[in-house]
């Protein structure tokens, strides 16, 4: 598959459906497209392109597969520990806490934070907005059902993040699935939102966008960071993935990094 093929496909996606992937990190995007072409056994690029152009049902699968939907609960326990110890006590002084999980995928991180808020006795005055560009993954967020075979690892990460409860009290196991407590889901508002094309929709106290910016090029990263900057209240917090940074971005001077975790506080 040539780079020109990718350009053609991206132009189609934008012209026909309004999806703009042109500022995604090209190496990763190309790898996803080549991978999908092979999984779905297209004999050539032309067949893949034809299918994407003509079959709206396939388009849904295409978008879902070329974007990365791998996530887990309490990934990087030290990050969650810092949220628990450094951020939630500050947010707790507010009458109301608005959180935005941008690019939340299937929602494992949203439920992780909901658990932290619950344990800090803050969940009742919190709202967690969970957004993604894929409607299918948001359906999973709404259900709060995750594979049971992951729970051992999630439980270990939960403990490492400073959790002291029996993790299994947060879900009901059934047929290989873990259904998380309804009291957590009640505080989660799901909505499709495309970071590339959609604007700010509320003011937040905490925005989490971890391991999403790695799929964007520098220009798009700057645009998205500006959107986050505009969507954060004063002294609000922005959390990124462990290998992502605000350094060298257009908004870096509006923020101060708190500690070794990738959490920044808005200072203007």
């Amino acid at each position: 598959m040539e780079d020109e093929d990718i350009d053609l496909l991206l132009t189609d996606l934008f012209d026909l459906y309004g999806y703009d992937f042109t500022n995604y990190s090209r190496a990763s995007l190309k790898r996803r497209i080549v991978r999908l072409c092979s999984i779905d056994k297209f004999p050539s690029f032309a067949e893949l392109r034809y299918k994407v152009r003509t079959d709206e049902a396939y388009l849904k699968r295409f978008v879902e597969e070329i974007t990365v939907n791998v996530t887990e609960m309490f990934r990087d326990p030290s990050f969650y520990k810092s949220l628990r110890e450094d951020i939630l006590p500050v947010l707790g002084t507010k009458p109301f806490i608005r959180v935005w999980h941008a690019g939340c995928s299937t929602g494992e991180e949203v439920y992780s934070l909901a658990i932290l808020l619950k344990e800090a006795n803050l969940l009742r005055k919190s709202l967690l907005y969970a957004t993604d560009l894929n409607p299918t993954v948001l359906e999973k967020v709404r259900k709060g059902i995750f594979p049971l075979n992951q729970m051992k690892q999630y439980s270990e990460s939960y403990i490492a993040s400073g959790g002291v409860n029996d993790f299994s009290t947060y879900y009901t196991a059934n047929y290989g699935q873990a259904k998380f407590d309804q009291s957590l889901a009640e505080k989660i508002i799901i909505s499709t939102h495309n970071l590339v094309s959609d604007g700010s929709f509320n003011e937040f106290d905490l925005i989490l966008c971890r391991n999403v910016l790695i799929y964007f090029d520098k220009d798009l990263q700057d645009r998205v960071l500006k959107l986050f900057d505009a969507s954060l209240g004063s002294l609000g917090y922005l959390a990124l993935g462990t290998k992502e940074t605000l350094k060298f971005s257009v908004v870096q001077h509006n923020f101060k990094q708190l500690n070794r975790e990738k959490i920044w506080k808005k200072i203007v």
Partner: peptide, 21 residues
């Protein structure tokens, strides 16, 4: 390469990280 990320190189000679399967 950092732990738990795939490491890719872009045509403009910058690194990209990827947390896919």
């Amino acid at each position: 390469a950092p732990a738990d990320y795939h490491l890719l190189v872009e045509r403009d000679f910058t690194f990209s990280l990827d947390y896919s399967e």
